[in-house]
Design a protein around this nucleic acid. Structure first.
Length: 191
DNA sequence: GAAAAGATTACCT
DNA sequence: GGTAATCTTTTCC
């Protein structure tokens, strides 16, 4: 079983800096349907189409950036398009930095021929793509091993709801997902 | 230096 | 539905 077997061909144009440089909720919606591709050292490539995300914004007590830069979260204050990867319990989770201090958590992805569960949830998504803590701080705009592509897909309906696993600002509707995607984690979201 | 908390997951009833 | 696993970062003394 090879990694290539599960990869899908990246399509569309590569996202540029300006795509990321905006408030996180707008970036979150724009990321739905985009493709994340990770190239490993041995040449293996894995991609997923993003189907579920969460936005973390300025003044947001649930955000890792709320209390200012620390050793862990410093990537959140880096350039738009930077990857912010952090460890939680036994897994890692990946965010894409929006305007400085804001970020979008990648919660679920889908890939051809892959059971939806494989990339459902932020930890499983990173495990499937091979993203590790070493990828923290990577720039996805400027030619790293992680890149983001924006396929010219038709606009699809987006569902919204509260974020998962947080203790503060629990009611803010900053979770976004594509409708009718099996990989989207529970609880279900409304239109 | 110690303790608590955590943007999770898997497995339990 | 609930909870334990398990470990790093942050915070507090």
């Amino acid at each position: 079983m090879t990694a290539e077997r599960f990869s899908s061909t990246p399509r569309g144009r590569r996202a540029r800096r300006g795509f990321f440089d905006r408030a996180a909720p707008g970036l979150a919606r724009a990321l739905l349907g985009a493709t994340v591709t990770v190239r490993s050292g041995d040449g293996a490539v894995r991609s997923v189409r993003i189907v579920e995300v969460e936005a973390y914004v300025r003044g947001d007590p649930a955000s890792h950036a709320y209390r200012g830069p620390t050793r862990r979260n410093r990537s959140m204050f880096s350039r738009p398009g930077t990857l912010y990867v952090y460890r939680i319990h036994q897994v890692v989770c990946a965010n894409l930095v929006a305007r400085r201090g804001e970020a979008v958590l990648l919660r679920a992805g889908a890939a051809e021929g892959v059971p939806p569960r494989e990339a459902s949830g932020p930890g499983r998504l990173c495990r499937f793509l091979g993203i590790t803590i070493a990828d923290d701080g990577t720039d996805v705009v400027d030619g790293g091993r992680v890149e983001l592509r924006l396929p010219p897909v038709a606009r699809r309906s987006i569902r919204t709801g509260p974020r998962v696993g947080i203790r503060k600002a629990v009611d803010r509707p900053l979770r976004f997902a594509l409708a009718d995607e099996p990989a989207v984690s529970r609880p279900r979201l409304r239109a």
